[in-house]
């Protein structure tokens, strides 16, 4: 099943609502879509929302690390919220947990 990312822009912040199943197949468009959004808008903060996500593999780690490098290079920040225990485990093994602050909710991620 094709699952899409939903993008939400708030000022210089881009919130990316991740799909339920975050694998290679569902990650294919993210790179292109975020590149496009970041070329057209000044983005200094990316927040990943995992609250819908029930599955993730190393393809998800690949896109998170890519966005992280891209934003960090411009001095911005990347964070996430809504991760279930399974997603947290994958983020930890993938080394992402040490790089990005984790929040409980969108509001917390936005205003901290």
């Amino acid at each position: 099943m094709e699952q899409s990312f939903i993008y939400e822009a708030k000022g210089q912040t881009l919130i990316i609502h991740m799909p339920a199943e975050l694998d290679h197949h569902n990650c294919r468009n993210l790179r292109y879509e975020t590149d496009l959004l970041m070329a057209e808008n000044y983005v200094s903060k990316i927040i990943f929302d995992f609250s819908r996500t029930t599955f993730m593999d190393s393809s998800g780690i690949g896109i998170l690390l890519n966005r992280y490098k891209q934003i960090k290079a411009g001095g911005g920040v990347v964070s996430f919220y809504g991760a279930s225990p399974q997603i947290l485990r994958v983020l930890k093994i993938g080394g992402v947990l040490a790089l990005m602050p984790q929040y409980e909710s969108k509001e917390e991620a936005l205003y901290r």
Binding site: R31, D57, S58, S59, I61, G62, N66, I93, G94
Partner: peptide, 15 residues
């Protein structure tokens, strides 16, 4: 390396 994390086998071994 541009699009992949290179962690596929590491994940298989971890899980």
């Amino acid at each position: 390396p541009d699009e992949r994390s290179g962690m596929g086998f590491s994940f298989m071994e971890a899980f």
